[in-house]
Design a protein around this nucleic acid. Structure first.
Lengths: 128, 128
DNA sequence: AGAATAATTGACTTTTACGTAACAGTCAAT
DNA sequence: ATTGACTGTTACGTAAAAGTCAATTATTCT
């Protein structure tokens, strides 16, 4: 099996443009095969794209996404690099935990804002 | 009491530049008082800045942040606007929930990446 | 008073992540 | 053979959110 995906197939699935996928290739995040000049995406590429888009949604830059992808494709061989990498992973984790806290707080705020709306709605409803 | 904060005081506290705070003022997110041309920030402004930065960390645009702030400063008076607003709040909530899921998944991935590093570290350690 | 320090405005620059335009090749179906 | 859908490349454009720099003012220290 091991089906091929065309570029538009994937753009439709993920709601991104062809430009975006080609851009990710330029940036070295994915490496679809070629038949002539046409890109052929494997399911491994598809999963990578999912990962990229997930990173994107939480505000990772391309460089950061690339870093994560590369690390666990093949962790650096040199000790210093490895230690640095682990430090960065740790920092990223802290950042994400902070972000989760921010999200929870903002969710609470949105609830608050919604209530304000509902209150206002009641006021208007009464007026009519 | 009701202390005044200077702009640099706040930039230090929050780790942003003066340019940033002035930019937020230009964008209508905060309205510090003035003594002559100098901005005087109240604690209400300070809290708003916290809120803004929290929004920023989770990837809200200035426009979105402004929207939330305004809504619960004073919810729109017109019914249509009000309903629209509540719809947008609902969408934002969905978005944030998705983002939280993304974060959890990425945290798991970072753990995975860290393990890859540790494995590699062990390999190197053995070699020496 | 004079120098140093801090704040202001305004204009210009930068970075990221694509969008968009222009133009051409490929391939299946009509 | 043409149409239409898709694909490709190259190159320039753009929006958001500041950063940077220069020219002015104010304030504070001694």
């Amino acid at each position: 099996m091991d089906k091929y995906y065309s570029i538009t197939e994937l753009t439709r699935e993920f709601g991104v443009s062809t430009r975006t996928l080609r851009f990710y290739e330029d940036e070295g995040l994915i490496h679809p095969e070629r038949r002539g000049r046409t890109r052929l995406f494997r399911s491994a590429d598809r999963r990578l794209i999912q990962e990229i888009l997930r990173g994107r949604r939480i505000g990772f830059t391309i460089a950061e996404i690339r870093e994560v992808i590369n690390v666990y494709k093949e962790p650096p061989g040199e000790l210093g690099q490895l230690k640095l990498m682990m430090k960065r992973i740790d920092e990223k984790r802290d950042e994400l935990r902070q972000k989760r806290k921010d999200i929870d707080e903002t969710l609470a705020e949105l609830n608050h804002a919604e209530e304000a709306c509902l209150t206002r709605l009641a006021e208007i409803g009464v007026g009519t």
